[in-house]
Nucleic acid binder design. Structure first.
Lengths: 364, 364
DNA sequence: CTGAAAGCGCTAACAT
DNA sequence: ATGTTAGCGCTTTCAG
C-alpha cells in the first residue's frame, strides 16, 4: 500500500505539502510543485487511507442504515434511494444492517457503528421506544428515524421522517367507500407501532365519516416470525383465510402494506374468494410489485424518493442545526393509484357509474 | 469518547494491560488485575475504536458487497443471507453498494473499499470482464464473484460461486416438455452474460434432446434502463406483447428469472393470453414472490443460502488458502418447484395423466 | 505480571 | 512556499 510518505518522497516534497494538495489547500504552493505532487499521486496510484484520515479528523464518510430486513422489497427500495442520495450528494457509502425488529440487534448495530466511527445513521424501526438510540445521539451521533414520530411529550434529539400514514389509510378506505363497500376491514400484523396505529386511525376516520364505523374492523393476522418481513405476505394469506371464515365477511380490505395485500390476494384466491368480484383489496406503499399482480393491486403510493432525500439531508446537516419544530417531518404526498383490485361489492344495492379501472404502467 | 487511556487510568494499570485484556491475553495478568480492568471498562462504557485497531492491524471487520441493485428482491434476499453468515460467524458488517451493472461504478466502489481498509468483497456482477477486480486482488483484496465463472484460459485470483444455471434452465425446459409443450421459448433481456448464456445452453440442450430444437427460440425483450433491475419485470411485460404477436406463438416459456416471469405473466394477461391455459411460464430463482402471484409461479429454486454461506466462507479464508481447482464452485442443488403456471398446451394432442399441480407453501 | 515506547497513515498547527 | 512535528486510539514487542 502506498502512503503519503511515498508520494512525498517521490515528489521530493514534505508530507504536509502532499496533505495540502489532498485537502485542496493548493494556494499555499507553487503551481509547479502542485503539478509535481499530482503527477506523483498519479504515478503511484496513491489513495489516501480513509482510516487514517478518520482517526485524525473523527469523520468517516459512511452512513449507517438500519432496516428490519433487506429481503423486504420495500426496504430494498428505500435503501436504494437513500444510497443514491448519500453517494451522489455527499460521497457517503452505506453500512447496512438488518435488525429483524429486534432491540438487541439494533443496539448491537449502534455499538458497532460507533466503534467504526460512523456518526450518522438512518433507522427504520418500529420499536416502541427509542431510548437505545437516544443514547447514541448523546454520544454524538446524528440519527433520523423513519416511519415513527417522536414520542409525545418527550423532547428528542432524534429526527423523524414519515409518510402521512393516517392520510394514506384514509384515502385507501375512502376509495373503498366510494365504490359502495359497507363492510370494511383493515388487515394488519400482531404488534402495534406508531405507523400502524396511524393507519388504523385513518381507516376508522374514513369509516366514521361515512357512518360505517360499526361495520369496520381491524383484523390481526398474527405475528411475524424470526425471518421478519418477507413473511408478512404469509400473514396476509392467513388473514385471508380468517376473512373467508367470517359469517358476513368484509368486502373491502385495506392492507397494512403492499406485501400484505399481495399475500391477502393469494389467500383470498385459495379460499375461493375472487378479487375484486367478491372482495376488494387496497395496499399502501406503491411497490413496483403491485404492478405485477393479478389483478394488479390498487394502492396508495408513498413519496419514497422525497422521504429518502429528506432523511439523508437531515442526517447530514450539522448536529444541532435543526430547530425543534423541524424534528418531525411528515410527507403528505401520498396518492391513490387505481388499478384492478377494487370493484363494487357483489351485492351493491345501488351500483355507481361503472368507472372501468384501467391498468396503468410501471412504478418505482 | 472514552479511550483505552481513560480505562488504564481508571483501573490504575498501563494501556498495554488494558489492550491485553481486550485481546484475550488474560493469562499475562493476575485475576485481580483483570477484574479491575474489566470493571473499569464496564464503568466507563468503553468500546475500543475499530478505526484505531484497523489502522494498527490493517484489518477491518467489514465485508464489501456489490450488487446490481438493492431494489431487486433477489439481491435483497442474497444480501440478507450473506449478511447473516458474515455477522454470525465472523462478526463482520456489510458495506454495500449498488452498481447498476456499470463498470465505472464498480471501480469506484472498489477504490472506496480499499481506502476504507476493507479487504474482502463479494461481487454480484455480470460484466463481461473482471479486470477491474483482478487489480483489486493484486492490491491485497480477497474477492469472490457470484454468478459468473472464471474466464476460461485466464487463471484468476478471484473466487467464483454460482448456481448450476445450465441445469436450472434445463430442468425448467424439461418440465415444459414433459407437459407436452412443443413450441418453446426462453425469455431474456438484452446483453449476454455468462449466467445468461449458461441458461440458454441449458434451454437448448433440453429442447435438442426432445427433438424440439427447431421450434425453440430465444426472445430478447430489450435493454434494462438506468434503474437497473426492478424494471426487468417490465422487459418481461414487453416480451409478452411480442409473444402474443407471433403467428404460431410459443406455448412454453422459460424466463431468465422470477422477476421476468412475473412481468411476463402480467403482460400475457394484458395481451389476452391466459396462463397457464394458453401459455405456460416457468421462472428461475425461487423468490418468495413467486408464491404470491396468480397463478403461482412454477420455478426452479436456487440454493441461495448455501451459496451465500459458501461465498462468505470463501472470502473470509486467508488469501492464497484456496487451491486452484477450488476457485470455481458450482452449486448443483437446483430444483423445480411445481406450482400453477404450467399446464399442457391448449391443443395438446395426447394429454398426459392430468397430474394436478398442487399449490404449496411459503419459500425464502 | 506489568509498563514504556514505537509506530499504523494522515492532518494541522507551528516553524522556517 | 514548504518542512517539522505532535498526535488521533490502539497493538505489540521489549524491558523491567
Amino acid at each position: 500500500m502506498t502512503t503519503i510518505q511515498d508520494v512525498a518522497r517521490h515528489a521530493a516534497v514534505s508530507v504536509s505539502t502532499v496533505s495540502n494538495v489532498l485537502n485542496g489547500r493548493t494556494d499555499r504552493m507553487r503551481a509547479e510543485t502542485l503539478a509535481r505532487v499530482e503527477a506523483s499521486i498519479q504515478a503511484l496510484q496513491f489513495r489516501p487511507s480513509k482510516l487514517a484520515q478518520q482517526l485524525k479528523t473523527g469523520q468517516t464518510p459512511l452512513l449507517g442504515l438500519l432496516v428490519p430486513s433487506m429481503a423486504n422489497p420495500m426496504y430494498g427500495y428505500i435503501a436504494r434511494e437513500i444510497e443514491s442520495v448519500a453517494q451522489e450528494r455527499f460521497g457517503f457509502r452505506l453500512l447496512i444492517g438488518s435488525t429483524y425488529r429486534d432491540r438487541e440487534k439494533e443496539s448491537a448495530f449502534f455499538e458497532d457503528l460507533l466503534a467504526h466511527g460512523v456518526r450518522r445513521v438512518i433507522v427504520i424501526s418500529s420499536l416502541a421506544d427509542e431510548r437505545h438510540f437516544e443514547s447514541a445521539v448523546e454520544r454524538g451521533m446524528a440519527v433520523v428515524s423513519y416511519d415513527r414520530g417522536a414520542t409525545p411529550g418527550k423532547p428528542s434529539k432524534v429526527g423523524h421522517v414519515m409518510p402521512d400514514n393516517f392520510e394514506a389509510a384514509r384515502l385507501a378506505t375512502q376509495h373503498l367507500i366510494d365504490k359502495d363497500h359497507r363492510r370494511l376491514a383493515f388487515a394488519t400484523v400482531a404488534g402495534m407501532t406508531m405507523s400502524r396505529s396511524a393507519k388504523i386511525d385513518g381507516f376508522f376516520a374514513a369509516a366514521e365519516a361515512a357512518g360505517l364505523r360499526a361495520s369496520a374492523q381491524v383484523l390481526d393476522g398474527g405475528a411475524l416470525n424470526e425471518y421478519g418481513d418477507s413473511v408478512i405476505a404469509e400473514v396476509g394469506r392467513a388473514t385471508a383465510l380468517q376473512i373467508a371464515g367470517l359469517p358476513e365477511h368484509p368486502t373491502g380490505i385495506v392492507a397494512l402494506n403492499d406485501l400484505m395485500a399481495l399475500g391477502l390476494m393469494a389467500g383470498l384466491r385459495e379460499a375461493g374468494l375472487g378479487v375484486p368480484e367478491d372482495v376488494s383489496v387496497v395496499g399502501i406503499d406503491g411497490l413496483f410489485l403491485a404492478t405485477l399482480s393479478n389483478p394488479m393491486l390498487t394502492t396508495v403510493q408513498l413519496p419514497v424518493r422525497e422521504m429518502a432525500r429528506a432523511m439523508v439531508e437531515r442526517v447530514m446537516q450539522h448536529p444541532g442545526e435543526a430547530s425543534e419544530d423541524e424534528r418531525e417531518q411528515v410527507f403528505t404526498g401520498v396518492q391513490l393509484i387505481e388499478r384492478e383490485s377494487v370493484a363494487p361489492p357483489p351485492a351493491a344495492s345501488q351500483p355507481r357509474i361503472a368507472r372501468r379501472t384501467k391498468p396503468e404502467k410501471a412504478a418505482p
